[in-house]
């Protein structure tokens, strides 16, 4: 028995660096959520500052921002989930029965490329298209058609579409790789047999392919739903060039927390918004996981 406990010590030592990193950057901050219930006064220190109960939350909820950022975060995520899943499935289905394998690999590689670019890079690409003076849209489309140049970065009503497109541009290639891999693991015998029986492509897709990969689709969608209270910071902060005029349609919980802390230095408000996100986000991800567990226990987190 002494041999076994010795073996465990070896493994524990091996885990130490990783555990320290995990503890310091992920677990320790969990205990820091009490900051949201305090009125932080640097003179008194974090622990010495006065407890203010739910004051920070009451201030936060009383601002019109609370509703706007909650709505924006959820609405963008829902649109991204629906359109992103549909687009990625369409791409994967398109590639699945292409006979030209070289072309398939090429298409896949090109569509996957945007995934590796940071949002700062994407924001420059978008700027090249939308800049008021020199942008491609104004110079090559709007003006030749006789239109007045559009001040894209001052028009919040366009940005739900622009950000949705940017999000699809960056992620559809990535998601379609997963769906295509799932489709490739289907026994080709099923599809061959069906087409010999005279089934059309639409029937094969609806009756064979989609049902057989439905687990993968459901799991991916549920994982995204689990994160519905969190947003892709760079998309909403950098791609919009941090323009205040776009806040009404582009401010999300993450950008709000960042801006309230960094620009306004309002620790109470931003930590209240942050804890609100953590707690509601936690409930949603736990619920999503319970559903995943019912469908496919191997894929659930717990």
């Amino acid at each position: 028995m002494s041999l076994k406990s010795k073996a465990n010590w070896g493994l524990l030592v091996m885990m130490l660096p990783g555990f320290i990193a995990l503890f310091v950057f992920s677990i320790l901050p969990m205990f820091g959520v009490f900051i949201a219930f305090k009125n932080i006064d640097y003179e008194k220190g974090i622990f010495g500052s006065d407890w203010v109960g739910l004051d920070n939350f009451q201030f936060f909820v009383a601002t019109p921002d609370a509703l706007v950022i909650t709505f924006n975060t959820i609405a963008y995520n829902l649109v991204f989930i629906v359109l992103g899943t549909a687009a990625a499935l369409a791409v994967a289905l398109g590639l699945e029965n292409l006979k030209a394998k070289k072309a398939t690999r090429f298409y896949q590689a090109v569509m996957f490329l945007p995934y590796f670019l940071s949002w700062v890079v994407v924001s420059n690409l978008v700027f090249a298209l939308l800049s008021v003076d020199q942008g491609v849209f104004n110079r090559q489309i709007v003006q030749p058609l006789g239109g007045e140049e559009i001040y894209w970065y001052n028009r919040p009503e366009f940005w739900p579409y622009i950000l949705t497109f940017a999000n699809l541009w960056k992620y559809v290639g990535y998601t379609s790789v997963i769906y295509l891999a799932a489709m490739m693991s289907i026994d080709p015998g099923y599809i061959e047999a069906a087409s010999l029986e005279g089934a059309t492509r639409a029937q094969i897709v609806r009756r064979i392919i989609l049902p057989l990969i439905s687990n993968v689709i459901i799991i991916l969608v549920l994982l995204q739903i689990g994160k519905i209270f969190f947003s892709d910071f760079g998309l909403f902060y950098n791609v919009t060039m941090n323009m205040g005029s776009l806040f009404p349609t582009t401010q999300t919980i993450d950008t709000y927390v960042y801006r309230t802390l960094m620009n306004m230095g309002d620790l109470g408000m931003s930590s209240a918004a942050g804890l609100y996100q953590s707690v509601v986000g936690f409930v949603i991800v736990v619920l999503a996981n319970l559903v995943v567990k019912k469908i496919d226990p191997d894929k659930s987190l717990f």
């Binding site: 901050p29 900051i35 927390v257 802390l261 930590s271 942050g274 804890l275 987190l301 717990f302």
Partner: peptide, 16 residues
């Protein structure tokens, strides 16, 4: 699993 489910958020992380 715990770290995947719950995060302290930006401010506690920043403070740490």
């Amino acid at each position: 699993i715990l770290t995947m489910l719950f995060s302290g958020g930006l401010i506690p992380w920043f403070m740490v």
